[in-house]
Nucleic acid binder design. Structure first.
Lengths: 145, 145
DNA sequence: TATAAATAGGACAAAAATGTCCTTTATTAA
DNA sequence: TTAATAAAGGACATTTTTGTCCTATTTATA
């Protein structure tokens, strides 16, 4: 609806990894892809990006996999994942695709988007992985289907 | 940011046509593409879609072109253009791409998206082409760059 | 130290979105 | 009635996104 497929998978994967890390479990790409119902090799690429951006931590070799430190679950906000994968056009871009659209030279929808964009931005900036993982843990939310 | 390129061009084209129709001028695809800074042949395709959905009216032959009745400028809301081009996933789709995501079985972002989506929906449903065209007419808004 | 398990990463493939070109159809006006 | 003009539409081309496959690298453990 709003994010690319890659970003959707990235968020779902990060939330799943966070959930498992709360139990001290490191998880493999194949488990992640299974649990969030995503294409495995594509998910692996996205996890590489998240790793490079220090959003998740990867460990190679046997007993390896992905994990997120308890500390990072609070530090990492949705906005960081979105920015790492989709860039920041969701914040800065014009709703009608104009290159320069701002209060001085607004597109016809500029003012109408101000609040919507601001709400979205605030939500993304203030929502942590920990918050999302705990909802899952309690069984209130789902990552599949 | 939120709409496809096709939809962005479609909205900009419709607003431009509405503006010119206020002056009783019918406009050609090439003029539209010039004025909204869009690829001409692609814009023509999009205008065909808008015509089929009775959002704009087209006339073939010399002196032909696109126009929008004064009445339709009030009737046609942004939501209709978006739906004609991008479908209604913007309203109905899940932020994380789950097939079935609802209050009973929500994704971790479901509740957080409720307000944002609702604001967006309300804005699209309540904004008419006339409103957008008059902003342009008065020189308060722009469709290019 | 050899083997196996796991991620990293490059190259490729498929699908979808974006964009172009050319012919057909309708219509105006000379 | 013919010529010119404009949209309609089909076929094709390009680019981006999504997705796959294979090899290299790292590392735990037998």
């Amino acid at each position: 609806m709003m994010f690319s497929k890659a970003c959707e998978y990235g968020i779902r994967a990060a939330v799943y990894i966070a959930l498992q890390s709360l139990d001290g479990r490191r998880v493999s790409v194949s488990e992640i892809a299974e649990e969030i119902d995503s294409p495995i090799a594509f998910t692996a690429k996205i996890l590489q990006q998240l790793n490079r951006n220090n959003i998740v931590h990867s460990v190679k070799g046997p007993t390896g996999g992905f994990e997120i430190d308890r500390e990072n679950m609070d530090t990492v906000k949705l906005s960081m994942i979105v920015k790492a994968i989709d860039g920041d056009k969701i914040y800065t871009g014009c709703g009608l695709g104009l290159k320069e659209c701002n209060a001085q030279k607004p597109c016809p929808l500029h003012d109408k988007f101000v609040d919507i964009r601001s709400n979205l931005r605030t939500m993304l900036i203030s929502t942590s992985l920990f918050e999302l993982a705990t909802g899952l843990e309690v069984g209130l939310t789902y990552l599949k289907r």
